[in-house]
Design a binder for these strands. Structure first.
Length: 136
DNA sequence: GCCAACGTTGGC
DNA sequence: GCCAACGTTGGC
């Protein structure tokens, strides 16, 4: 079991919409490093859902429902892939970026070191810590 | 609104 | 192959 974090601007695609849709293909990733992470995802992997830009908080937990497959929104023959994600549960208390930065146990968090990457790995202990901060 | 980080593009 | 120019992301 591996752990990940994906980012979305809530104005573009929000956690609320994700719940309403009961999951979604995670399309539109156009960065090779992010794509490599998508390719490493396996069904059942747990995924933190982060609202970037306007909210800057981890808001929920999702899981990988289907592994990487060609991104239907990309040109045929392109290297881009998408996984399917489905909701697991919201965080009772969203964890703001400032709280992630302030936590000594999260000093190594990939999100903090590479803020522009939209699909990031999370270590198991980091994942557990963020759930705890979020009230789970 | 600004700027840092960083990926991509294209001229040489 | 290098690097300047440029575009995008995302925090502040």
């Amino acid at each position: 079991m591996n752990y990940w974090l994906v980012k979305s601007e809530p104005e573009a695609y929000s956690w609320q919409q994700f719940l309403a849709d009961d999951g979604t293909p995670w399309t539109g990733v156009r960065n090779y490093q992010a794509r490599n992470n998508l390719n490493l995802m396996r069904p059942g992997d747990q995924v933190l859902f982060y609202h970037s830009v306007s909210e800057k908080a981890v808001v929920g937990v999702a899981e990988v429902a289907a592994p990487a497959a060609p991104d239907a929104t990309a040109e045929a023959g392109s290297p881009w892939v998408a996984v399917a994600l489905r909701p697991v549960q919201p965080l009772p208390r969203p964890v703001p970026l400032a709280a992630l930065k302030a936590d000594a146990r999260l000093a190594g968090l990939a999100l903090l070191r590479q803020s522009r990457l939209s699909v990031l790995p999370v270590q198991p202990d980091e994942f557990e810590r963020i759930l705890a901060l979020g009230g789970l």
